[in-house]
Amino acid sequence: MKTITLTVNGRPEKLTLSPHRTLLDVLREDLGLTGAKRGCEAGECGACTVILNGRPVNSCLVLAVELDGADVLTVEGLGGPEGLDPLQQSFVDNFALQCGYCTPGMILMGKALLAKNPRPSEDEVKEFISGNLCRCTGYENIVKAIMAVAAGGERHG
């Protein structure tokens, strides 16, 4: 067992954990943050995507004990129903979800992309989210939703 402190969605958390537990499990089982989903536990689907120290990661591949001092953002930290983040709102407006199980991961990927590249081309969006699987939408509206929020909103590529 090891005790770590980290920040999750802006809140400090102190956790005592056994060394093999993943960030995904800790978020879901210990912190009640079930927005990060499990689709494979092997880094293949991206449903578990969170932003760790500013970068998107598959939380199923991150050991939680290594996160002392880290900063984690999950979909719950983006905005609530009263005040959706613009990208969340864009997913709603563009019908970018069906079952919605991939959605938190997709939204966080979109956030991460737009943070480093505010004007991505459509191809750059596709490339960036290509590690995140969606079985329902065929991606079309997801790409549209991210493009709609991109600065200026124009579509290139």
């Binding site: 879901r28 089982e29 943050l33 927005g35 989903k37 719950e76 129903p81 959706l84 709603v92 979800l97």
Partner: peptide
Amino acid sequence: APRADAAAKVTGAERYAADYY
């Protein structure tokens, strides 16, 4: 019409069967 389930799904608030503990 907007999807009735969209807001809860984009915020991570929706509880799927997998999310019951």
